[in-house]
Design a protein around this nucleic acid. Sequence first.
DNA 1: GGCCCTCTTTAGGGCCTT
Length: 313
Amino acid sequence: MCFSLLQIPRCKIHTLTNSWWGNLYKFGRGSVCNSSFKVLGSDKYEFEGGYSKRWIRRSVITETGGNKNTLSSKTSIRHEISEETSSIKLNTYELETTEIERSRYYVQQKIADNKDLESLVTFIVFDIETTGFGRENNRIIEIALQDIRGGENSTFQTLVNPGRYVPNTHIHGISSNMVNRSGVPRMEQLIPILLQYIQSRQIPGGDVVLIAHNARTFDVPFLKREFSRSSYEIPPDWLFVDTLPLARAVMKSKGSKVPSKVSLQALREYYGIPLVGSAHRALSDVHSLALVLQRLTYDLKLPISGLLESSFK
DNA sequence: GGCCCTCTTTAGGGCCTT
């Protein structure tokens, strides 16, 4: 359904000042069909549609056990401790700062080295459903990814067995019975498959950019914690982009009140993107975010190089 | 937890993610 939007006839290419812009942005807007532009690529970056079975990597399809409408599936001593703690925090901060600087340098160097970024970068939108917000006491129960270039196996979705009760079924519709079963992979079983899938989408010599809404403070730390529990590390060549600050920037530029207009649902409604499937299911939210991302990058006049510069490791 | 805004910065509250 959402992909039918992409079939809307394109009428005219905007004249854009940024040289990247003309090459990268193309998208037909249903309600404003006087424009067309490429999004994150040339024709090969267009989405393709339908929730056909061929969308799903069969090796990780899991049984949902139910809803088939859901998408496939511190005194002196105290003072000393305080000083020591501060020192540790400071060191951690310095390490993090160094890592950010390295990441920024890495991206800028990549941009400088590669004139044809479009053909080298793989953009993958992803989303996770979890048993709660805190990453220390909760687990991932569903994960979905979508390579925005489209093509065969462009999406990946699976439930994840958390090995524990799911207390927030009322949010996403995923119950304990759906995930705590033998046919659903545990995170340690899933990670190798996930790594293999993303590698299969990666262009040799190119980078992978994983995009999520509120990625910086939720999805990425959560994913990193799950990898750590399974004795894995996030691959060093993965970059992440958070669409939340992009959305805030767009809403600010439109004069909207930033705090109340930047949830994924609010953005979907703002851009008139129809909901396909159930909200708060990973694949449904991924499809929504992929379309939201197109609008955000368009509104911000953000080329691939700009999107890359907003990435973090 | 990080980011943003305001009735602000020596702070507090709201939003976002499930």
